[in-house]
Amino acid sequence: MIDVAIAIDGEAVNVSLTRLAAGSYNADGNWVPGAPTTSTIRAAIQPVRGNQLMDMPEGIRTEAGWMAWSRSEIIVDDEIASAGITYRVLFTWPRMEGGFYRVALGRKTK
């Protein structure tokens, strides 16, 4: 059996991962969104293929154009920036038995 984590490590590059912290209500009862935190992770980003689209929920298929694989935790609505392009994480497939995360990405417009 192929160890996917080794393959990911071989293709991964440094990318920027931005995650919003949980928000809270202030003393006046107004919602205050959490601050974004940015870190560097290693991920392999590739264009999505037809067979991979079939694994996605139907509403995500039209927006998803890229897939990423990483050994770092990635969650829905994280943003990944690579080579001057920012992507939003649309869907995740955590693979605890393989030690990696597979995610569907949609390109963000400015």
Rank of each mutant, 00 (worst) to 15 (best):
E79T: 14
V4W: 07
A64C: 12
L53Q: 03
A68K: 03
L105S: 02
P33D: 14
G59N: 12
V4Q: 14
W31Q: 09
A104Y: 00
I75C: 06
T38Q: 13
N14K: 13
L17Y: 00
A44G: 12
A12K: 01
Y87P: 04
E58H: 08
V15P: 03
I41L: 06
L53T: 00
T37C: 10
G59D: 09
W31R: 05
V15G: 07
A22L: 11
T18H: 05
R102Q: 15
T37H: 08
E58D: 14
E79H: 10
R49P: 04
M56D: 09
G29E: 06
V103L: 07
M67D: 07
N51M: 10
E63A: 10
G99N: 13
I45K: 03
E58A: 13
K108G: 03
E63S: 15
V76T: 14
A35L: 09
A104F: 00
D9Q: 10
V76R: 15
I74M: 10
R49Y: 08
A35K: 13
V4A: 12
R42A: 14
S16A: 14
E79V: 06
I60G: 02
G65C: 02
F100G: 04
D55V: 04
G84F: 01
R88C: 09
V76S: 08
V48F: 04
